[in-house]
């Protein structure tokens, strides 16, 4: 028995990476509050296509909060105002009738806009390629209890591994720092035995690539942690720094 919403959407429209962008207003009537934010954009796009206009480009894939594609800032916050939620899992009942909602792409030099809300996040791929993997042969799946790992450590590694690489941390950070992302990727391996053999080179390479991509430094403001849809902890950044220092000194 939910009431339909009438909303004004202010969406960032930008033809290409080197063209000038601006907000365009769209009024939307009778919005079903059970729609997700991406479904709202779908509805708007269908209308735009019917009217012979250019639909809004935005990235999406799983629509269940696990792939990290739905990168967009909603009312100035990465993935919108609801904590621990991706834009695809953000439902319209969190908004009020009559609201004006602003939607814009991630803001960072290293994430150039491709079109409208879609940005090029391949900088993250290159950071992963530089060392965010385990290449030692770990054989076929061993017995689960063969390598004892205490619960706390396992949980920390799992929590770090929950990062979906969406880039919200970079966009929320005043410095456009990728520290939360890179540190989660470093931590998830550094906590576990399988990550140890390549630990030193991994940390050095990933940090070097992060700097090369032009991301800023970490001021520990905490904006990343506050807006991360997967609640990645800033403790990982401290872990990354420690591992980096160890790698430099060893």
């Amino acid at each position: 028995m939910s009431n339909k919403l009438n909303l004004t959407l202010k969406v960032w429209r930008q033809e290409s990476s080197d063209s000038h962008g601006d907000f365009v207003d769209y009024s939307m009537e009778g919005v079903n509050p059970h729609m997700s934010f991406l479904e709202l954009l779908d509805v708007l796009n269908e209308r735009l296509i019917t009217e012979g206009m250019d639909p809004i480009a935005f990235e999406h894939d799983c629509r269940e909060g696990i792939c990290g594609s739905c990168a967009m800032s909603i009312n100035g916050e990465a993935h919108g105002p609801v904590k621990s939620t991706t834009a695809c899992q953000l439902h319209m009942f969190h908004f009020n009738d009559g609201d004006t909602i602003t939607v814009e792409p991630w803001r960072a030099k290293s994430f150039p806009v491709i079109k409208d809300l879609a940005v090029d996040r391949s900088a993250f791929d290159r950071i992963i390629q530089s060392g965010g993997y385990v290449s030692v042969n770990t054989g076929s799946a061993p017995d689960g209890n063969a390598i004892p790992i205490d619960k706390e450590t396992a949980t920390m590694a799992f929590d770090a591994a929950a990062c979906i690489g969406c880039g919200a941390c970079v966009s929320s950070c005043k410095n456009s720092s990728a520290s939360l992302f890179v540190s989660a990727k470093i931590s998830q391996f550094s906590k576990l035995p399988q990550g140890q053999p390549e630990q030193k080179q991994r940390v050095l390479s990933m940090v070097a690539q992060m700097d090369k991509e032009g991301f800023g430094h970490c001021t520990n403001t905490g904006a990343c942690e506050a807006t991360c849809p997967k609640d990645i902890s800033m403790d990982n950044i401290s872990t990354m720094n420690k591992e980096y220092l160890k790698a430099i000194l060893s």
Binding site: K10, W12, P81, A108, S176, A226, T227
Partner: peptide, 17 residues
């Protein structure tokens, strides 16, 4: 880091993160 930002966020956040 100022250079890394490029264009800042255009919409104001009403909560300080």
């Amino acid at each position: 880091s100022k250079k890394a930002k490029g264009i800042a966020n255009q919409s104001k956040i009403d909560v300080a993160n």
